[in-house]
Structures are given as structure tokens and as C-alpha cells.
């Protein structure tokens, strides 16, 4: 099973410990892991929200992140991007 880890800023709607989810794609894994998080991660049109960052096996997935494939042993982090200077 893939592991999904949500940022602690989502602890009101998502588990704050790693949870198992089926492989397949990032999108499928996120919502299998915890469906209540959908409106926090996706916008009205089902797009990944602008400042949500997705990391798969240590790599920042910048394009078409929801469709990105996951292996059965992948580790998926859902984070919030920070900007500024």
C-alpha cells in the first residue's frame, strides 16, 4: 500500500499520521485515504489548489499532479507551498 501523509495544517479534516492508500494515481490515493479532504485540496473545478504541493517519493510533482502514477510502495506528501522573501 502507498503511504499518504497530509500536512498537519489539515489535521481538522485529515489524519495527522501516515495512512495507507491504494496505488494508482495521486488523486485516487488522496481521496481514498480521506475523502473529507477533497474541498481543501481541490477547487470548484477539481483542480489542485494553487498553493498545494505534492511530493511523490521525494520529488515535487509540478504538472498534472493528480494524474501522477503511484507505486504500491510510494510515499505521497500533501503539503502547502510557502512563498515570500
Amino acid at each position: 500500500m502507498a503511504k499518504v501523509i497530509f500536512t498537519s495544517h489539515l489535521k481538522s479534516v485529515a489524519p495527522d499520521v501516515a495512512v495507507d492508500a491504494p496505488g494508482g494515481s495521486v488523486g485516487a490515493a488522496i481521496f481514498a485515504a480521506h475523502p473529507a479532504v477533497r474541498g481543501y485540496v481541490l477547487d470548484d473545478q477539481g483542480r489542485l489548489r494553487l498553493h498545494i504541493a505534492v511530493f511523490v517519493d521525494g520529488v515535487h510533482v509540478r504538472r498534472d499532479a493528480l494524474d501522477h502514477p503511484l507505486r504500491s510502495d510510494s510515499e505521497l506528501y500533501i503539503m502547502q507551498a510557502l512563498s515570500g522573501g
Binding site: 474541498g39 477547487d43 470548484d44 473545478q45 477539481g46 483542480r47
Partner: peptide, 20 residues
């Protein structure tokens, strides 16, 4: 449920599709 715009065809790939 927060108010939201209806999904438009292809909206998940269209940066200009509306969202509250």
C-alpha cells in the same frame, strides 16, 4: 458546503474556469 461554481467541461485542466 461552501458555495461553488458549477464544474465546466474541461474545467479541471483550464486555469480560467471559475472558482470561488
Amino acid at each position: 458546503p461552501a458555495p461553488s461554481f458549477p464544474k465546466v467541461e474541461g474545467g479541471d485542466k483550464d486555469a480560467k474556469a471559475p472558482a470561488v
